[in-house]
Design a protein around this nucleic acid. Sequence first.
DNA 1: ATGGCTGCTTTGAGCAGA
Length: 257
Amino acid sequence: MKIATWNVNSLTVRLPRLLDWLPVHTPDVLCLQETKIDDARFPREELARAGYDALFSGQRTYNGVALLLRSGLPPATDVVTALPGFADEQKRVIAATVAGVRVIDFYVPNGQAVDSDKYAYKLAWCAAATAFLRAELARAQRLVVAGDFNVAPEDRDVHDPAAWAGQVLCSEPERAVFRDWLALGLADSFRLFAQPERTFSWWDYRQLAFPKNRGLRIDHVLLSEPLAQSCRGCRIDRDARKGEKPSDHAPVIVEIA
DNA sequence: ATGGCTGCTTTGAGCAGA
């Protein structure tokens, strides 16, 4: 099974690139974030023609998540689109059970700046997410958490750790959340394998950040123990950040035996 | 030093992203 995650930064703008990408990489499940599109406008038919069914929880302008499921998989079950007990207008979660795997797609809040209301919202959202993951792990052995976590877990995930020290995406409380999630019994699939130094998943659109490789690794795929044991690889598709009209994020692709 | 790109918005300057 191949599972991937990609923050597309507008599904409307990125649809041509997504339709090019899908047949090359053929994920069984693709978790999307920042679709920025109403459910009524979701490009269901274009994706069906590309061989993918979709589950989505969207809104216009901001946020929005979706699961693309390769046609021919058994029907997805137990779809969830909110964190229990956390009232939220923002569409940042979609989960479903697909072919015996519980797939959870998160678009974690950005947090803007550590002294902002948005940062407090991020930490509150993450606390609710921790409780959700604990409950989900109690029910599902085979579980994936994939998405844009908006956290660079360690300094090696940051192009310039000194410049980013204590800043949003790298602050200690955010990194503590990431470690909390690992402590629930999840593995960072990327770190199960040897990886090139300075591998990132997001690069600012400005200042030639991508050609200079000034990025952060903030998009992640976490695996429960049984899936970690059968994981065959994890890589970031840097090529998807190249060319015309790229998202500022690159996809992360995981293969499970 | 600043803002530097991109996408979005009852269209256009301002917000948000990260």
